[in-house]
């Protein structure tokens, strides 16, 4: 096994042997990502209605199911109806603080049991959550970004926001407001560059998941089949009051 120094020295030697095929540079990063992010936010504060419409179209094109809710009560209503339709009695969710709303009050009274992700990763809490995640038919999360041009939900993992919530259940429900809408992948790039420079975030091992519709495969005779490993259904609930 080569050491790091030996390995890199060999690469360096080869790199120096050639000027390359043509003069080229990588994509230009935003010089001040935080400012670029603020500019995107200002832009989207104006443009979100168009972005929402585009998001809905693209999301439905990839077989996502879109809902619009006026406020918390309606969100709970959508989830309650879904649970009824699926005959589901148990839900897993992100921690309430991460979700930005507490569903427990309005859903537990309907006979649904809710397991929220623990806000820290102590071993016993972790084990309990994993068991619930492996069992629960519905998982409820927020969405950090909703990308209009591709109908993609983008979720950052972290304390209180495990990825299994959006992965193990048959049905994934993501709740978001207008401040999460983005129009282009380029804007996502700006957000991720800015995120990376946030001191608090840069040390966290967060996973960023781009989710574009339900899990799918066409590996058997090119027949499109949904829900091979991840959710069979993905719902996005847009909350107007946010």
């Amino acid at each position: 096994m080569a050491t790091r120094a030996e390995f890199l020295e060999r690469i360096r030697r080869e790199v120096r042997r050639t000027p390359g095929l043509f003069p080229a540079s990588a994509a230009e990063r935003p010089p001040r990502p935080a400012e670029a992010r603020a500019a995107v936010r200002r832009q989207m504060a104006e443009r979100w209605p168009e972005a929402l419409e585009r998001f809905r179209q693209e999301f439905e094109r990839v077989n996502g199911l879109f809902h619009r809710a006026a406020g918390l009560e309606e969100v709970a209503g959508v989830i309650r109806d879904l649970a009824r339709e699926k005959d589901a009695h148990e839900l897993i969710t992100w921690a309430s603080a991460e979700l930005g709303l507490d569903l427990r009050g309005s859903l537990e009274s309907q006979g649904l049991s809710i397991v929220a992700a623990p806000a820290d990763g102590r071993d016993d809490a972790r084990g309990r959550y994993r068991e619930a995640a492996a069992r629960a038919p519905i998982g409820v999360t927020g969405a950090d970004f909703a990308l209009a041009e591709t109908g993609t939900l983008i979720l950052l993992s972290g304390p209180g926001r495990p990825h299994s919530t959006s992965l193990l259940p048959d049905t994934h429900v993501a709740i978001f407001g207008k401040d999460r809408l983005l129009e282009t992948l380029e804007q996502v790039g700006i957000m991720l560059e800015a995120l990376h420079l946030d001191a608090a975030r840069s040390m966290s091992g967060s996973v960023v998941s781009f989710i574009t519709g339900p899990s799918r495969t066409a590996d058997i005779e090119l027949t499109l089949t949904r829900g091979v490993h991840g959710p069979k259904e993905v719902h996005a609930i847009f909350v107007e009051a946010r």
Binding site: G121, S206, V207, R216
Partner: peptide, 22 residues
């Protein structure tokens, strides 16, 4: 021919303190 594949997953290192999973 998809605009994006269903899942694009960006993974950084092992689980960090206070994370539930990873």
């Amino acid at each position: 021919g998809q605009k994006l594949s269903v899942y694009t997953t960006l993974v950084r290192g092992p689980r960090q303190a206070r994370e539930v999973e990873g």
